[in-house]
Simulated assay, not measured.
Amino acid sequence: MLLCALAVLAARPTDARDEDGDSGPALGAQVARLYEEAGKATQQYEEGRREAEAQRSKALEYEKRLDRQRQKIDAMHEDLGRIARAQYRSGGGLPLTAQMILAEDHDELMRGQRALSRADLAVNNAIGKSLRAEARLAADEAKAQAAWQALEERNAGLAELKKKIEGKLEAARSRLEGQADASVAAGSCPGAVRLDQPGGRSSRSWVAPVETYELSASFGSGGSRWATRHTGQDFAVPVGTPVRSVGAGRVVKVSCGGAFGIQVVVQHAGGYYTQYAHLAAVAVDQGDRVRPGQWVGQSGSTGNSTGPHLHFEVRVTPEMGSGLDPLPWLSQRGVPL
């Protein structure tokens, strides 16, 4: 069922267009959808890998237990051999009647015979139990090996579907990036991409601007790319990554062009503003109310940017020049980065 579901996702057309044949807002929505599907495929694949490793470990453990059981059986066979050799040395090779005629102490002979018989029976019983245990272990090992092989086959299919989805996502990201660069060059912002928002409302008042990221250029860092110092915190993410409003507020600016490329600015309670820059697409319009975690756009590399990332700022005015360090500001609101 899982493979069939992912196959349907992978088979979706990549050239999504609206009724006018323009791949504008539809392309951004497609990238967001593929981004989510690629994440789900990766999660399913990783879960399958962990499950396969667990089955493989179980099979190896059964194999070790089998080796120990076989060593135990070999030792019992050796014990049985010693009993047989002891019987031979004490006259066990003669018929019992002959031994009784030749023996000086008949009672001692009978006691010895009974002891040898009991030892012989005990070893034989132990060997029988061990052989049955060996058979059970062998069956368990075979089951674990079969389960591991089945999981490996399923994971091979998952890996192939994951690769297909990621290939489609990469192609769509490239087209989205080209479309965003063209919009910025023309000074004409693309319309809002009304993305399917993540299910359920966040129970938190504040969240990180992107869900998965690597921190790159930090607030106040120097470099040739900035006139003075870096005015925000950069999050290294692929093109098309959903960008979230860190808290509840109102969109006061949506613009494109200049150093920030396509950007969104949100006003929050308490006189604070957050900026989301270098976007490839926006998902809100000026004047919209947003909630914590709501997608306001998709990351890109527009404007003065050397690669895909989100430039995030916290300000006390809508315009640049009043920035605060975003890391302690978010940390004070329960969002450590």
Rank of each mutant, 00 (worst) to 15 (best):
M1G: 11
L2G: 13
A11Y: 10
P13C: 10
P13E: 12
D20C: 09
S23L: 12
Q30Y: 06
Q30A: 07
L34K: 00
Y35E: 08
E37W: 09
A38Q: 02
G39S: 05
K40T: 10
A41N: 07
R49A: 10
A52L: 13
A52T: 10
E53L: 14
S57K: 14
K58G: 08
Q69F: 07
R70A: 10
I73F: 07
M76D: 08
E78T: 13
L80A: 13
G81T: 07
R82Y: 09
R82H: 12
G91T: 06
G93A: 12
G93F: 14
L94W: 11
M100C: 08
L102Y: 14
A103H: 09
E108M: 14
M110Q: 13
R111Y: 13
G112H: 09
S117D: 11
S117G: 10
L121V: 11
L121C: 06
V123A: 10
G128E: 12
S130F: 01
A133F: 02
E134F: 04
A139P: 01
A139Y: 09
D140K: 11
A142C: 05
Q145H: 14
A147K: 13
A150C: 05
L151V: 02
L151H: 04
E152T: 11
E153V: 11
E153C: 01
N155C: 13
G157I: 05
K162W: 02
K162D: 09
K162V: 00
E166F: 07
K168R: 15
L176V: 05
A180P: 00
D181Q: 15
D181N: 13
D181C: 08
A182G: 06
A185E: 14
A186Y: 11
P190H: 09
A192M: 00
V193H: 01
L195T: 02
A208L: 04
V210S: 03
E211Q: 14
Y213V: 04
L215V: 15
L215E: 10
S216M: 05
A217G: 05
S218G: 14
G220M: 10
T228G: 10
R229P: 00
Q233P: 02
V237Y: 03
P238A: 08
P238H: 07
V239M: 08
P242A: 09
V246H: 00
G247N: 03
R250C: 02
R250V: 12
K253D: 12
S255I: 05
S255H: 11
C256W: 02
C256Y: 03
C256K: 03
F260D: 02
V264C: 04
H268C: 07
T274G: 03
A280Y: 01
A281V: 04
V282Y: 01
D285A: 12
D285S: 14
V290Q: 00
G293P: 00
G297I: 02
S299E: 06
S299D: 06
G300L: 02
P308W: 06
P308F: 06
H309G: 01
L310F: 03
G321L: 10
G321D: 07
S322R: 13
G323Q: 15
D325C: 05
P326R: 05
L330G: 01
S331D: 13
S331Q: 15
Q332E: 14
R333V: 03
V335W: 03
V335R: 03
